[in-house]
Nucleic acid binder design. Sequence first.
DNA 1: TTTACTGCAAATTCTTTGCAACAAC
DNA 2: GTTGTTGCAAAGAATTTGCAGTAAA
Lengths: 163, 163
Amino acid sequence: MKQAEIKRAFEGYLRRRSLKLTTQRARIFDRAFATHEHFSAEVLYDWLSKEPGVKVSRATVYRTLSLLQDGRFMKSLDVGRGEMVYEHVLGHGHHDHMVCTDCGRIEEFHDERIEDLQLEAARKKGFEIVSHDHRLIGYCRSCSAKRKKDATAAHVSRAAAAS
Amino acid sequence: MKQAEIKRAFEGYLRRRSLKLTTQRARIFDRAFATHEHFSAEVLYDWLSKEPGVKVSRATVYRTLSLLQDGRFMKSLDVGRGEMVYEHVLGHGHHDHMVCTDCGRIEEFHDERIEDLQLEAARKKGFEIVSHDHRLIGYCRSCSAKRKKDATAAHVSRAAAAS
DNA sequence: TTTACTGCAAATTCTTTGCAACAAC
DNA sequence: GTTGTTGCAAAGAATTTGCAGTAAA
């Protein structure tokens, strides 16, 4: 497990900028890295409120998430639901996302060929890429299957009603 | 010019859904299609407020933009600045965007090979794509050039100061 | 005349901030 | 002791909504 290692990096990061390692920050850090799912600030706040430990306010959650992003310990992504979603950068490198509109599930994908084509497109326009945002919106495997089943059921019942 | 044609389509769209073609809606439609740039709801509202014509409230601007999206006359895109940006769908097909963080300029690009690779990625995960969002964030040609010049100037002046 | 639409202001949602009390260092 | 942090509640920013009056059809 390299979570201990990255936590040390976080502590060093704070020290270097003369920031303090408060119990709240430690708790937020631990909780955020304890999950491998994506979560919103509100969800993280809920977890912290329900689980035992020092009180952490919503404001501190937001402030610490910004801090973690500045230090490149976490990334935020806009999945188009009005709220930001966070993920830690423990290990896994760059990737893009597929967001299920039904259940909210987020899948990751990566294709180096797409990255290359992006660079090519940017070069053509003289554009200097700093970052990019690429997400596919639709239905994950299980929601897609469910929808197809429902559509079929509806079709059958319509046919029955018409007969 | 096919703007007249698409306007008729909009009128038909309203009629079919027993909605009314109010002077406000007509004005918003005309103004939105009169530009080939991307704009936010607020900017459109400003245009309408300053230019002569019937009064249009902010609420109506928002409501009409939603309506235009529902009817596929316009698309909205989230450029990551907290507000939505709109573009009409007059003619030009699907494309993605490059957003300049310095000047806000938005460039369009399209590469069918990227579209294919997206489909391939989705297929692998059993994901059913409904839409996607792909944007490159960085500096447009002129802002990029300006930044490079500034960086060089700063470097030169630092060197001079140190000597 | 009926039904939809508009403007207004209040409400919402997510996120940020000012400030006084407080905890790291 | 300093200096940075926290919690709270108020402030923001973009967008939506309830309602009473107004204008299309």
